[in-house]
């Protein structure tokens, strides 16, 4: 029994790692098609990562050990966080080691080190990226926590597995607060993953860039680790929205082998739908100025806050 549980947990860890570049590649492909471009092939991100891994790491002369350690820490923290989000199965053997607040905390740890790494070489681009990233974080993190409050108050738990099970089985129904939380979560997911309209994952040498400015000095295997962490983070957010708002088909420990197979089949489908929606959204909106981002995320914060407040007023909202 314990062995099966361990296997499933291990499978989940490998699954998120294996699928993360695919999701990014898929979003890029759909975006390209929507723009009537051919675009890179679906598996391009894997090739990029392999190529980067094989290259020499070019490190600035004055870079400290932190610069070289940070990519691995960021990758580790993000991978652990992504592995704790139920994808095809809930109630995994290690799911109790961190709840949703813990997952957000892990992402915050990754961000902390990424921002430090951006400041390590002492270039102006690194500083601009780090300071803007932290500014975005000061809005996105409280907004995310408000969403956690909303979900936790409905489900009576901050444990993501329990939330998914409650939402799938008990039929919490359509709720105002959940609607607010969904919109807020999408806004945050866009900001956290450096997507348009907050940031552009495909630009360089533009004064509005945030994430790319921080990682500008990275190359080779270090850059591969950071890119992989960013892909994992995108997968994490899509999985998170999936497991909370479309929790159907996620296997629970009681559902038997057939349930797991169903979960494994449905999960890629959810990713595909999430990827298409993301690509559609990104191609239909323009990048905004960096000081418009507070207003954008302020909406998310207010929506999350409103959802929580409604639940404090009455549990039935």
């Amino acid at each position: 029994m314990a062995l099966t549980a361990l296997t499933i947990q291990f499978l989940q860890m490998l699954l998120v790692l294996a699928l993360a570049p695919l999701l990014t590649g898929f979003v890029r492909m759909v975006k390209a098609r929507l723009l009537r471009r051919k675009g890179p092939p679906l598996l391009q991100p894997y090739q990029d990562l392999l190529r980067l891994l094989g290259k020499h790491a070019v490190v600035a002369e004055n870079a400290s050990w932190l610069f070289r350690v940070a990519p691995y820490l960021i990758f580790g923290a993000t991978w652990v966080a992504a592995a704790l989000v139920p994808t095809f199965a809930s109630g995994l053997i290690f799911s109790w080691s961190a709840d949703l607040i813990g997952i957000i905390g892990l992402l915050a740890t990754a961000r902390f080190f990424l921002a430090l790494a951006g400041m390590d070489v002492g270039t102006s681009f690194g500083g601009i990226g780090s300071s803007r990233e932290m500014m975005i974080a000061t809005l996105a993190e409280p907004a995310m926590l408000m969403i956690v409050f909303t979900l936790a108050l409905i489900a009576g738990s901050t444990q993501l597995s329990v939330i998914a099970q409650v939402f799938a089985m008990d039929g919490v129904g359509l709720r105002v607060s959940l609607g607010l939380a969904l919109v807020a979560l999408i806004l945050i997911a866009l900001a956290e993953n450096a997507r348009i309209p907050v940031d552009n994952p495909a630009t360089h040498l533009e004064l509005t860039m945030v994430h790319e400015a921080m990682v500008l000095e990275y190359s080779g295997r270090h850059l591969a680790m950071i890119d992989l962490a960013a892909m994992l983070k995108l997968l994490l957010y899509v999985s998170l929205i999936g497991c909370v708002f479309v929790p159907w088909g996620i296997a629970s420990p009681t559902s038997g082998p057939l349930g797991y197979i169903l979960g494994l089949l449905l999960y890629p489908l959810k990713l595909v739908i999430g990827g298409v929606l993301l690509a559609l959204f990104e191609t239909s909106i323009a990048k905004m100025r960096v000081f418009r981002v507070p207003q954008f995320l302020g909406i998310a914060l207010m929506l999350g806050f409103l959802g929580t407040l409604l639940l404090f007023v009455s549990r039935s909202f």
Binding site: H56, V59, N62, R68, W79, V121, G220
Partner: peptide, 30 residues
Amino acid sequence: FILFTAYGAVIVIHQFVSNAIRRAPPWDCG
């Protein structure tokens, strides 16, 4: 978990792919 995954990544990459470092002036987008 974080230490295992991070250290595991270091081991795997250094063992099987590359552990070469080249020092160069900061790039800073040119």
